[in-house]
Design a protein around this nucleic acid. Structure first.
Length: 587
RNA sequence: CGGGGCGUGGCGCAGUCUGGUAGCGCACUUGCUUUGGGAGCAAGGUGUCGGAGGUUCAAAUCCUCUCGCCCCGACCA
């Protein structure tokens, strides 16, 4: 059974008048996205400087609730909590080779002894160093260490409030196994733990396959909270559970068809003065872009390569990079294109090209198509594969698009947006080999650790929850991560009766372990309603003279428009039941 | 780093073009009234107009430099 309650922390102030939740009526002008606006307005965060935020009490409470869920599920999965330093010596990073590779995101500085240091953006080096010093034998494996800690990445452009900032709270875990099979198992355990974590956070999410660079295979999943405002575009199958981000999403190669040589028409020149783009070409020749073959020249690790793709398709540079096993890849400059093809940009074609030629699978299905002629203002018509030119290799090189089918089951696919809140990644032996981190196997031989790393953006998860759950009045928090479970609103603080009854209910709820906020401010009722809605407290109990006369209180959910009247004596029980019901819904 | 925008009281903004010594709403303080969806009236406090330099009798306003922030792009285990 999954434990869902986050216990009230003893001694916490729960009276609004003595607490600190500074809300804004107006939208701060420098907040663009809704979660950023609402976190500022609800008094959860304040900005110190670009990309760096203070968490105010209500924001911190929510962060702590996410952390606690993460901690419980990590512990349940067998991971062990540690806390590593924020400041790290350059030596470790030089050893892994990342000191020179990491770029400007790595904040570097020198200490008084002139030693190079950095503030950790991630902790592979530190944990690998720890494990290589402390773990000797395969008998001590597997292990998985995690921490919840503040990290720093000197982002080029921090934005969207707490979603993409420089200093951020992250849970990161690192697994160490004796062999590949063990690493796969550790990966799966983390994958499962992440499913439980985000479920308990009350989020609609999806694990999607992500690009894993040179490692390949399905050994990287991003956990995406589904929200229209998400930064990442993802696709998911409506029939099976295949889901992937756009750069990873596979496109199934079309079935092999017999080349219809009989239908081949003779090759023709077409004068195309000043026609450079696919759009211009389709208009000029009155044809569809799917009858045109695009020839793009890329430079992969310094070597030019021509990439052929159907006119209505787009090259997926991540796929191209992985296919070529290149470290860097970029579109060739106009000068290089001219040098290679003998024509200015816009007239490149595969005929007579000297460079390596690779093509997307879809090109195979094209007949009598149009290509550039490698000569200014000239194209060819009725070009055909084999007869007119040869392709070195075919591969899946394009971006998936609307109308494509699921690569796994052929089902219809859905395009959507998501916010990446977690990432599980199989590292293999990259760091253990570089840093000579080994254990002895059962034959007494040294073996590098097989590693995995697993991250969760804690504050980003909070922001994602808000992006997904809000309305015109403010945040609608899932109860498991709301700053308070219940808001108690005595409407007339000058009426002794109202105050006494609300104090009684407040104490009864506290005794029940309910995380309740008593809004004991002497302000007008409207202010209390507005603030409770803005902050997003899931359950609201209202005590006003009007219903008190009938011996009743009001119970309302933030997520629903209607309230119900409850006899005063039943209020603590009804609150307890409502809270439980809300937790049960997200189990 | 390239392009664009903005810095005026705690917050949101007007004033800048056309130079004349700073204003509005919210918030805040006090009093009275009010009390079920961000109250009303009255009184009050609040600014080195982001900073530095320059032009001018006079600069929030014009000029130069500079700092910060936001947006778009490039970038992103």
């Amino acid at each position: 059974m999954v434990k869902v309650r986050c216990p009230v922390i003893a001694g916490e102030i729960m009276r609004y008048s003595k607490y600190f939740i500074p809300t804004y009526k107006e939208i701060p002008s420098d907040a663009e996205v809704i979660s950023h606006q609402l976190m500022l307005r609800a008094g959860m965060i304040r900005k110190l400087t670009s990309g760096i935020y203070t968490f105010l009490p209500a924001g911190l409470k929510t962060v702590r609730k996410v952390e606690n869920i993460v901690r419980e599920e990590m512990n349940r999965s067998g991971a062990i909590e540690v806390l590593m330093p924020a400041v790290q010596p350059a030596e470790l990073w030089q050893e892994s080779g990342r000191w020179d590779f990491y770029g400007k995101e790595l904040l570097r500085f020198k200490d008084r002894h002139n030693h190079d240091c950095c503030i950790g953006p991630t902790h592979e080096e530190v944990i690998t160093d720890l494990v290589r010093k402390e773990i000797r034998s395969y008998r001590q494996l597997p292990v998985n260490f995690y921490q919840i800690q503040t990290k720093f990445r000197d982002e080029i452009r921090p934005r969207f409030g707490v979603m993409r900032c420089k200093e951020f709270i992250m849970k990161d875990a690192y697994s160490f196994d004796a062999d590949e099979a063990g690493a796969d198992k550790s990966y799966q355990i983390m994958h499962d733990a992440y499913m439980r974590i985000f479920q308990r956070c009350g989020l609609r999410f999806r694990p999607v396959e992500a690009d894993s660079g040179s490692i390949g295979g399905s050994y990287s999943h991003e956990f995406m909270v589904l929200a229209d405002t998400g930064e990442d575009e993802i696709i998911s199958c409506m029939k099976c559970n295949y889901a992937a981000n756009l750069e990873k999403a596979e496109v199934k190669a079309p079935a092999e068809t017999e080349t219809a040589k009989a239908s081949w028409e003779p090759l023709q020149d077409v004068e195309t003065p000043n026609v450079h783009t696919i759009d211009e070409l389709t208009a000029f020749l009155s044809t569809g872009p799917n009858h045109i073959l695009k020839t793009l020249v890329f430079v992969a690790d310094g070597n030019p390569v021509a990439v052929l793709i159907r006119g209505d398709h787009q090259v997926n540079e991540v796929k191209l990079k992985n296919f070529l096993r290149a470290d860097t890849i970029e579109l060739a400059s106009p000068g290089l294109v001219a040098e290679l093809t003998g024509a200015p940009m816009g007239f490149a074609g595969p005929l007579g090209l000297k460079s390596k030629i690779i093509a997307d699978h879809a090109v195979r299905g094209m007949v009598n198509f149009i290509t550039g002629a490698n000569k200014e203002d000239l194209h060819f018509r009725n070009v055909n594969l084999e007869r007119d030119f040869k392709v070195n290799e075919f591969a899946d090189l394009r971006v998936i698009m609307r109308g494509d089918r699921c690569p796994r089951c052929g089902g219809e696919i859905n395009f959507g947006r998501g916010i990446e809140v977690g990432h599980v990644f199989k590292l293999g032996t990259k760091y253990s080999k570089a840093m000579h981190a080994v254990s002895l196997d059962d034959r007494g031989e040294e073996q590098p650790f097989f590693m995995g790393c697993y991250g969760i953006g804690i504050a980003r998860t909070v922001a994602a929850a808000i992006e997904q759950n809000h309305d015109r009045d403010g945040i609608i928090f899932p109860i498991s991560i709301a700053p308070f479970e219940v808001a108690l609103l005595p409407l007339q603080m000058h009426e002794k009766n109202v105050v006494e009854i609300s104090d009684g209910i407040y104490n009864a709820c506290l005794a029940d372990g309910i995380d309740i906020l008593l809004d004991d401010r002497d302000v007008r009722p409207g202010v209390k309603f507005k603030d409770a809605d803005l902050i997003g407290i899931p359950v609201r109990v209202t005590l006003g003279e009007r219903t008190l006369k009938q011996g009743m209180a009001e119970l309302k959910l933030r997520s629903e428009p209607k309230e119900v009247l409850i006899p005063l004596a039943d209020v603590p029980g009804a609150v307890r039941a409502k809270v439980k019901e809300l937790y049960d819904q997200i189990k």
